[in-house]
C-alpha cells in the first residue's frame, strides 16, 4: 500500500467535510478497497473511515419500506432483515464468507458497483432509493455500468430505502474461485408488477431483464420464462464462462429465483 492518512469521523457531516479534501476517499468495510490498495491500484492521500458513524448503521421498517443504513454489515442485514424482507436477508447471507460479512457493508458494495456483486441486484430489482448525504437517487439511475454509479466526488451513501416486495428471492451461481456471482438474479414481485435484476453477467454491470418482468407479470411461475433468453451480446467473457454460458445462466437462475419466491 502507498502511505495515506487515516481519519475516522463520527458523524456524516464530519465525514463529508473530510472527504472534500484533495485526494480523500471513503472506506467502509474495506473488503474490496483494501485488497485494491494492497495491489497499489489506488493511491488515496486520506482514507475517511465510515465505520465510526452510528447513524449509518441499522435496519428499520418505515411503512412498506425497509430502510437500511449504508454502514450496516452484511451479517447485520442477514440477521435484522430476515423477518421483514427474507429475500434480501438471504442475499446478504450469500455475500463473501462469515468474516467478510462482518466487515463488508451495503453502502460500500453499491458504491463500488462491482459487476459481480450481489447487492446491486436487490437494489435494482426492488426499485430501491439510494439516499446520500445530499440527495435521493432512484436505483434505475444509480447504477451506470461496471464500477460506475451516479455518485459524485465526495458524496456518500447514507442509506437505501427498499420497497418490501410481496415475495422475492435471489438465485446466485457462484464463480468457483472468487465466489462472486458468475450470474445472480433477484426477482421481486410487488402488487404493481415484477422486477428482475441480473448481476455478474453483463459487461454493463447489473441490469433489468424487462422481457422476463413482462412474462412474470402475466404468470409468476418458472414456466412463464421457458421461451425467454437474453442475447449473448454484451455478456462477460472470462476464464469462468463464455457469453453464451452466462446468457444461459441468466435464464436458469431467473427460473430458480421465481421458483424459490413462489
Amino acid at each position: 500500500m502507498y502511505a495515506f492518512d487515516f481519519v475516522k469521523p463520527s458523524s456524516i457531516d464530519d465525514a463529508v467535510k473530510a472527504l472534500s479534501a484533495e485526494g480523500a476517499q471513503p472506506i467502509a468495510g474495506g473488503q474490496t478497497l483494501i485488497p485494491t490498495l494492497k495491489a497499489r491500484l489506488n493511491a488515496p492521500e486520506t482514507l475517511v473511515s465510515l465505520t465510526g458513524i452510528a447513524e449509518l448503521k441499522g435496519v428499520c421498517r418505515d411503512g412498506d419500506v425497509l430502510v437500511i443504513g449504508a454502514g450496516t454489515s452484511h451479517a447485520a442485514v442477514a440477521r435484522d432483515a430476515a423477518a421483514e424482507f427474507p429475500g434480501l436477508a438471504a442475499l446478504a447471507l450469500q455475500i463473501g464468507d462469515p468474516a467478510v460479512r462482518n466487515r463488508g457493508t451495503l453502502g460500500g458494495s453499491i458504491a463500488n458497483n462491482d459487476p459481480a456483486a450481489c447487492y446491486p441486484a436487490a437494489v435494482l430489482a426492488t426499485g430501491a432509493t439510494v439516499v446520500t448525504d445530499r440527495r435521493e437517487i432512484a436505483a434505475d439511475d444509480f447504477f451506470q455500468g461496471m464500477f460506475t454509479t451516479a455518485l459524485e466526488e465526495g458524496e456518500i451513501v447514507t442509506s437505501v430505502r427498499f420497497p418490501i416486495p410481496e415475495v422475492s428471492a435471489y438465485a446466485k451461481f457462484a464463480q468457483p474461485a472468487s465466489r462472486f456471482a458468475l450470474t445472480g438474479v433477484f426477482v421481486a414481485k410487488f402488487a404493481e408488477g415484477v422486477r428482475v435484476a441480473v448481476t455478474g453477467a453483463s459487461e454493463d454491470g447489473v441490469f433489468r431483464w424487462t422481457e422476463a418482468e413482462e412474462a412474470l407479470v402475466r404468470s409468476f411461475a418458472p414456466e412463464a420464462l421457458a421461451d425467454l433468453r437474453v442475447p449473448d451480446g454484451g455478456m462477460i467473457n472470462d476464464l469462468h464462462g463464455t457469453p453464451a454460458y452466462r446468457a444461459h445462466l441468466v435464464g436458469v437462475m431467473t427460473r430458480r429465483a421465481v421458483k424459490a419466491a413462489s
Binding site: F6, K8, I34, P35, A75, G96, A99
Partner: peptide, 24 residues
C-alpha cells in the same frame, strides 16, 4: 481476503485481519 489464515475476532466477531486497517 480469501484464505482466512488471518482470521481474528474483533469485538467478538470473526474478521480477516489482513483486510482491516489497524487504525480502524
Amino acid at each position: 481476503g480469501q484464505c482466512g489464515a488471518c482470521v481474528v475476532h474483533v469485538d467478538g466477531k470473526p474478521v480477516k485481519s489482513c483486510n482491516v486497517l489497524a487504525m480502524d
